[in-house]
């Protein structure tokens, strides 16, 4: 990648939830219109929820959000519903589309590479794993999404200073108390905060992106095109139709991703319930409910741990009538693709 010139650096500081989204979306339109590649930072002043461009609004527990006063905004880039608050510092790198590799996984590696350097520079031993997840050991330490807006490409991620696992789990609408508990447990297990000095991280990220992109840093602000876009984006993000998104079919089974490779699914049909946590294609833990399981539930749950989903369905199918019913729920799970 060769982009001559400057890297505009905009530190939006602390911003209200809406602006903590619309600021960097406006930057994307500006870069698309010819502004310099831009690295930006923002920290939300209050909790809120952001949902990915394609995702179903029904995935979000709106009642919980309303009760807590957390607004919900639909962003224009990818990923799932997430909880954001002042314990997270967000960074965004925005580049002209023509300057990034055509293959998405290579573009992401290129644009996340300097962020990894920044994490390491502030003492966090982050790596980009084979799933393109930023991790320390097996725990996700940075959530990110990416997208093309106009003729610009943007990758937005975060430095998690302090993470409210309970709040993060509560914004997802789980189908049962069992699924809700497993979700909270998995988020606590697989997502970690990495406290660091935000100012040091910003400086390290600026250095790393400038070095990698061979650009010189220049402090900047929104240009007139971006300020105009900001007003339009504020209105768009607050409109009910934008928030609703496109109509998408209900999935057969409820699913949630915790980190790349780790996800869970749950299905309920009357008194029958299945809650399964999956790690790299194998059952991490299964929770079963069926009125006729009687005393065999615990042994079957133990037997399923470590099996692939197909093996687990076969094992359940062999265990008689309740198992056949549960196996059917198993086979309806999409292995994490749509998450």
């Amino acid at each position: 990648m060769t982009v001559a010139g400057t890297l505009r650096v905009i530190d939006f500081g602390t911003a209200a939830p809406l602006r903590s989204q619309t600021y960097w979306h406006a930057v994307a339109y500006g870069v698309s219109a010819g502004a310099a590649p831009t690295l930006s930072f923002v920290q939300p002043s209050a909790p809120y929820v952001s949902i990915g461009y394609h995702r179903r609004l029904e995935e979000v527990d709106r009642a919980t959000c309303t009760t807590n006063g957390w607004p919900v905004y639909r962003r224009m880039i990818g990923g799932g519903p997430v909880y954001l608050d002042k314990g997270q510092l967000f960074f965004q790198i925005t580049m002209p589309m023509r300057s990034i590799p055509a293959a998405r996984h290579r573009a992401l590696r290129r644009l996340l590479g300097p962020a990894i350097e920044a994490f390491r520079a502030v003492g966090i031993p982050a790596v980009l794993d084979e799933h393109l997840e930023i991790v320390v050991d097996d725990r996700k330490i940075c959530g990110y999404g990416a997208g093309q807006i106009g003729e610009s490409a943007i990758v937005a991620g975060n430095l998690i200073l302090d993470f409210d696992h309970r709040a993060a789990a509560s914004i997802l609408r789980a189908p049962s108390a069992t699924a809700d508990a497993e979700l909270a447990r998995l988020i606590g297990r697989y997502v970690a905060a990495t406290p660091a000095d935000p100012a040091a991280f910003k400086a390290a990220a600026t250095d790393a992106y400038c070095r990698d992109l061979q650009l010189s840093p220049r402090d900047g602000v929104l240009n007139p095109i971006e300020r105009d876009r900001l007003d339009e984006l504020d209105q768009r993000f607050c409109s009910a139709s934008w928030l609703a998104g496109s109509s998408r079919p209900d999935p057969d089974v409820w699913q949630a991703k915790i980190r790349a490779g780790v996800w869970m699914f749950a299905a309920r049909d009357g008194d029958t319930e299945l809650v399964v946590c999956v790690d790299n294609g194998r059952v991490l833990r299964a929770r079963l409910q069926h009125p006729h399981l009687n005393g065999s539930r615990s042994s079957i749950e133990t037997e399923l741990a470590g099996l692939t989903l197909a093996e687990a369905a076969t094992t359940l199918g062999r265990s008689g009538d309740p198992g056949t019913e549960l196996a059917d729920l198993f086979t309806r799970a999409d292995p994490g693709r749509s998450l």
Binding site: G52, Y53, H54, M76, I77, G78, G79, R104, H105, A107, L108, L132, Y144, G145, A146, G147, Q148
Partner: peptide, 11 residues
């Protein structure tokens, strides 16, 4: 239309 892959949304 739009397409999402690798958490990257594009036209």
């Amino acid at each position: 239309g739009t397409l999402e892959a690798e958490k990257f949304v594009g036209p």
